[in-house]
Simulated scan of single mutants.
Amino acid sequence: MHYTNILFDLDGTLTDPRLGITRSIQFALARLGIDEPDITRLEHFIGPPLLQAFMQFYDMDEARAWEAVGHYRERFKVTGLYENLVFEGVPQLLEDLAGQGRTLYIATSKPWLFAREIARHFDFARHFKLIYGSELDGTRTDKVELIAHLLAEENLDPAHTLMIGDRKHDLIGGLRNGLDVAAVGYGFGSHEELAAEQPTYHFATLAELHEAFVPSAR
């Protein structure tokens, strides 16, 4: 792997945020009078921009979706962002990539305010030069826009930059900015969803991803 710059998605790529996100979605829906007792039915909220997800999955108009986002954040910023697990093997992968002299970034549609706190709390912020995310007003929730902003701010050469993620939004964001992209199959995107975007690489497991960078990792 020749890439000097590696962009990582956060949810479903570095961490498993399942409980924190789905419980916070459940809380937001309840505040709007919508009862969803089964949080597993809310896992499709993990990955896409939250505002658009409420509009798509619950047929909300934009004003009501923003209300839902507000209720979601009410719980998430206090409790939900800590209901999270770093995938086993991620700390060693980040250590190895940094040790190879690569520059690492996070590119997430989650607000950077929350993303940076998650990285700080779970002790992996130190591996990243900077963590990029959206603004609370919804600016740069689109991965194409977010990655374009990151590339411009950091003056990165797309030919030497790789985007790694578990949902189609990550792959589309990278490809439309001229990057090679790596899909990972251990997150929340199905094989069909990821394969449809024709990623440069497709790693079924974190071990396979690690092996691609560090051949002795297995």
Score class of each variant (00 low, 15 high):
Phe122Asp: 01
Leu171Lys: 04
Asp142Ser: 10
Ile147Asp: 04
Asp9Met: 06
Arg75Glu: 08
Ile21Met: 05
Arg116Leu: 00
Glu117Thr: 12
Phe76Ile: 08
Gly99Asp: 08
Ile46Met: 08
Gln26Arg: 12
Ser24His: 07
Pro111Ala: 02
Ala207Glu: 15
Asp157Gly: 09
Tyr58Asp: 05
Leu32Ser: 07
Leu156Ala: 08
Ile25Gly: 07
Ala195Asn: 10
Leu209Ala: 03
Lys129Thr: 08
Ile34Cys: 04
Phe188Ile: 06
Leu50Ile: 13
Asp166Tyr: 03
Ser134Phe: 07
Leu50Trp: 01
Thr139Pro: 00
Leu7His: 07
Leu51Gly: 03
Ala30Ile: 00
Tyr201Asp: 01
Arg218Ala: 15
Glu208Asp: 14
Gly165Ala: 06
Leu151Arg: 05
Asp9Val: 02
Tyr132Pro: 12
Asp142Tyr: 00
His149Gln: 06
His121Lys: 14
Asp16Leu: 03
Leu7Gly: 03
Gly133Ser: 07
Asp157Gln: 02
Leu94Met: 11
Lys129Arg: 14
Phe122Asn: 07
Ala115Gly: 15
Ala125Pro: 06
Ser216Gly: 10
Ile118Asn: 02
Ala107Ile: 00
His160Asn: 13
Leu113Glu: 12
Glu67Leu: 08
Asp142Phe: 01
Leu19Glu: 15
Glu74Lys: 11
Val144Asn: 08
Asn155Gly: 00
His71Gln: 13
Lys110Gly: 13
Pro199Lys: 06
